[in-house]
């Protein structure tokens, strides 16, 4: 399992625990935090499920570059960094926007949206060419060996 996939899965597990804590808080009437419901769903669906899908697909789908390192796995690492920084920004800015109207929280929330779109895009750049038939896979391997 490549390092980038291990990091995806471990980060996903952290979000899984955090999302269930948020789910628990949602059930306690005495606790009232702004934007807790969307944060619960996004930590669960983006932080956990999407992130574990990203990590496992980068590892298991055909056509993976087996060389480790940032340069060899750049789209995977960029996805990890962009997606997680976007999600962390959201976890900070969205509740903060409920407490304060300071401009900084709005800017951070927009930054979160842009980072998550960028993270999804880099994932697709990595994965789209790897969705191929056995025949295409063999041709790709042959080309790689020849070059």
């Amino acid at each position: 399992m490549p390092f980038v996939s291990r990091t995806f899965v471990k980060a996903g597990m952290v979000y899984f625990v955090l999302s269930l804590i948020a789910g628990l808080l949602l059930e306690i009437d005495a606790v009232s935090l702004p934007a807790l419901m969307p944060l619960f769903w996004h930590m669960l669906m983006v932080g956990w499920i999407t992130q574990i899908i990203f990590g496992v697909s980068i590892w298991m789908f055909p056509g993976r570059n087996r060389e480790e390192g940032f340069v060899n796995q750049k789209w995977g690492w960029l996805t990890l960094i962009l997606l997680n920084s976007g999600l962390v920004l959201r976890l900070i800015a969205e509740p903060a926007l409920g407490y304060s109207e300071a401009q900084i929280w709005s800017v951070l929330l927009v930054g979160s949206a842009v980072l998550q779109v960028a993270g999804g895009t880099t994932y697709l750049i990595e994965m789209w060419p790897r969705i191929m038939s056995k025949k295409q896979q063999r041709k790709k391997r042959k080309r790689r060996r020849e070059s």
Binding site: A93, V110, A113, Q116, G120
Partner: peptide, 19 residues
């Protein structure tokens, strides 16, 4: 993958709309 991209774009638009 196409749906993922569309889903993220829609989510981003709603998030920006909050700000």
């Amino acid at each position: 993958f196409v749906y993922l991209f569309l889903g993220i774009l829609m989510g981003a638009m709603m998030l920006i709309h909050k700000a």
